[in-house]
């Protein structure tokens, strides 16, 4: 903010010269009231200048306060919103973790049910084929009939068990909706921080050009490939590429 400089104003106008002559005349006449009026007139010339300067100062002050307000916004972001976002993202990890475990639990419970079903069906099928080719005596057939009864009963039970498990797997997917809402919020926050930082860089006039390589960046592992995000360096695109690369190395 520059020091306000009064603008030089041309006070050598005919009007002003006439005013000073008036002042002299009123004083010589002893017209105190008239003289005061002329002096007020003359002073008002200066006052209008002061008002102009005040206006300028007020605008500058306003701008400064706005910029300060933005600083404060950034500190609110840093002190509250970012820890809050961290909390939210941790919650996303928890939710996805829970969903994965719920799903895995159901799968682990269902797989043996399927295996038993398969085994039972196979053994009954073998006996059934023997019966059809009349390779079975009456006692064996009675046993088979009994086993069939049992088979239908157990299957009905197992089928409802499997249906329940599948429903639980279905329900475990509700995390997707919730986590994406949270992640969208965090993306919005990141955008806000970004625009504030850009504004600060603009205000402080920091040079934006030079890109310096973060020395830590090179040590960091890239992790899963995210479409549209380039981590630098060349990555393979899937298992086939990995296999090609390895076979080119003599694997």
């Amino acid at each position: 903010m520059g020091k306000p400089v009064m603008e030089e104003q041309n006070i050598l106008t005919d009007e002003n010269i006439a005013r000073v002559r008036d002042l002299l005349a009123t004083l010589e006449r002893g017209d105190i009231k008239g003289a005061n009026e002329v002096i007020d007139d003359l002073a008002s010339i200066r006052e209008s200048d002061i008002y102009k300067e005040m206006g300028k100062l007020t605008r500058e002050l306003h701008d400064a306060i706005m910029a300060f307000g933005m600083d404060e916004q950034l500190s609110v972001l840093a002190e509250n919103e970012i820890p809050d976002a961290r909390q939210r993202l941790r919650h996303v990890i928890d939710m996805t973790d829970q969903a994965a475990h719920r799903t895995l639990n159901e799968v682990e419970e269902s797989l043996p049910v399927c295996e038993q079903l398969e085994t039972r069906s196979k053994s009954l099928h073998d006996d059934w084929l023997r019966f059809k080719s009349r390779d079975m005596d009456i006692n064996e057939f009675k046993q088979l009939a009994h086993r069939l009864d049992k088979f239908f009963e157990v299957n009905t039970n197992d089928a409802s068990k499997l249906r329940e498990s599948l429903n639980n797997v279905l329900m475990a997917q509700d995390f997707q909706d919730l986590t994406s809402q949270i992640i969208k919020k965090v993306i919005k926050l990141v955008e806000e921080v970004e625009s504030n930082l850009v504004e600060i860089i603009r205000l402080t006039g920091a040079p934006g050009g030079k890109k310096q390589k973060d020395p830590k960046q090179e040590e960091k592992l890239a992790g899963p490939v995210v479409p549209g995000v380039n981590d630098g360096g060349s990555t393979v695109s899937g298992q086939d590429d990995v296999d090609d690369l390895l076979s080119s190395l003599g694997f």
Binding site: L221, A222, G223, P224, V225, D231, G233, S234, T235, V236, S237, D241, V242, L245, L246, L249
Partner: peptide
């Protein structure tokens, strides 16, 4: 999840 060529090498 690491898919960088240099890492595979």
């Amino acid at each position: 999840a690491e898919q960088k060529r240099e890492q595979i090498v």
